[in-house]
């Protein structure tokens, strides 16, 4: 079962994830002006919300993480030393 956690301190309330999610997993909490998870079970872990979130405010747990064979480990290694 997918578990989604929203970091409310980081969420800027832009609503991009609400607009982007094809399964309406998120809704805006009008009082707090933050995103809230309403249909967690319908999440298919496409992670479009991760890509669009400007604050990197969400975390998905217990999902199939797709292979990332496109990552250049040599470049990542150099970047890790710099950042």
């Amino acid at each position: 079962m997918v578990k989604i956690e929203i970091d409310e301190d980081a969420c800027v309330g832009c609503g991009s994830c609400v607009d982007d999610c094809p399964n309406d997993v998120y809704e805006m909490d009008e009082e707090k002006n933050k995103t809230k998870v309403v249909k967690e079970d319908d999440c298919m872990a496409c992670l479009s919300c991760h890509e669009i979130c400007p604050a990197e405010a969400m975390e998905h747990k217990n999902i199939h993480v797709a292979k990332r064979l496109y990552i250049d480990r040599k470049v990542s290694g150099i970047l890790k030393k710099i950042i």
């Binding site: 094809p22 479009s48 797709a66």
Partner: peptide, 10 residues
């Protein structure tokens, strides 16, 4: 194609 994402496509 219904939806494309960085981790899965429906």
């Amino acid at each position: 194609i219904d939806h494309v994402g960085p981790n899965a496509c429906l």
